[in-house]
Design a protein around this nucleic acid. Structure first.
Ligand SMILES: [Zn+2]
Ligand SMILES: [Zn+2]
Ligand SMILES: [Zn+2]
Ligand SMILES: [Zn+2]
Lengths: 137, 137
DNA sequence: GTTATGGATGTAATAACATAACAAAATGAA
DNA sequence: TTCATTTTGTTATGTTATTACATCCATAAC
């Protein structure tokens, strides 16, 4: 995972935000997991290096990392993944294997585009767009 | 909401599953809400008619209703909506207004299709496909 | 009508996920 | 140094969801 962490350092420096040791450690744990990681799993793993970690510790770090575009939340799993193309602006599309828990992230929430990974068989999709309706603009 | 409940009765009869008074009541509450409803809100409202209601009461009813295609879960809100086209097979696409909480459900998870409601401004999208990857087939 | 059967509901407890509120410490600028 | 801001620590609690087991109820066979 050196790439992801190095990219993260660069990206945070560019954007004038601070990738503190704690945040870096959480990113390291998320990036080091093949499957999406749960917040409380992070909490128990971070404990090895930081005995004081409590739920807010990890949720705050995750909030920062998501804000920075380094981590995504997998809504239907209450779990988190490291973004492989940190800093991309647009929405990500995730293909989650229910057997091996592997996640493939592709770009292109744009209509008319569907970069489905080779051979992936979709069983169920979660598609939710959030914003403002015409009446509330 | 007579339409939704009548349709539900019909659909359940067709499929040989039982829309019991409890399940019907939960569907009624979900369908009667303009905004997505939380499970524990249902729990407190159902209480008027069923003083014994506990969390499993409502979660079981919701599981049944989702299985029957009558209700959808809004993943990013931990909430539920009644399906306006009960029994449709394919995935639904939801447009959720963050101001008024109104939800528009459109069909067409098919690639190349995007039936965005008129004037809706998307701020953030959740797109998650679940299934089997090529290695697990 | 009685009796098995399976499905539905009741009930208690707890697990899993997430945030509020305030205190202390660390950082960086004036 | 002093000050303001951000980050982290800490305690408590709020919110969402499930497990496990008991009871009830509808249906159909006998
Ligand atoms: Zn990404
Ligand atoms: Zn797989
Ligand atoms: Zn629907
Ligand atoms: Zn609106």
């Amino acid at each position: 995972m050196p790439d992801i962490l190095d990219d993260a350092e660069r990206l945070c420096a560019q954007n004038g935000v601070r990738l503190t040791p704690l945040r870096r450690r959480v990113l390291e744990l998320v990036a080091g997991s093949k499957a999406p990681v749960k917040a409380y799993d992070l909490l128990s793993r971070i404990d090895q290096s930081n005995a004081n970690a409590k739920p807010p510790t990890v949720y705050r770090a995750l909030d920062f990392l998501m804000e920075a575009g380094l981590v995504h939340r997998v809504e239907a799993l209450n779990a988190f993944i490291a973004c492989p193309q940190a800093g991309h602006g647009h929405a990500a599309m995730l293909y989650v294997c229910e057997d091996c828990a592997n996640v493939t992230e592709v770009q292109g929430a744009r209509p008319g585009q569907d970069n489905k990974p080779d051979g992936f068989a979709v069983k169920r999709s979660v598609i939710e767009h959030y914003g403002k309706c015409i009446d509330c603009r």
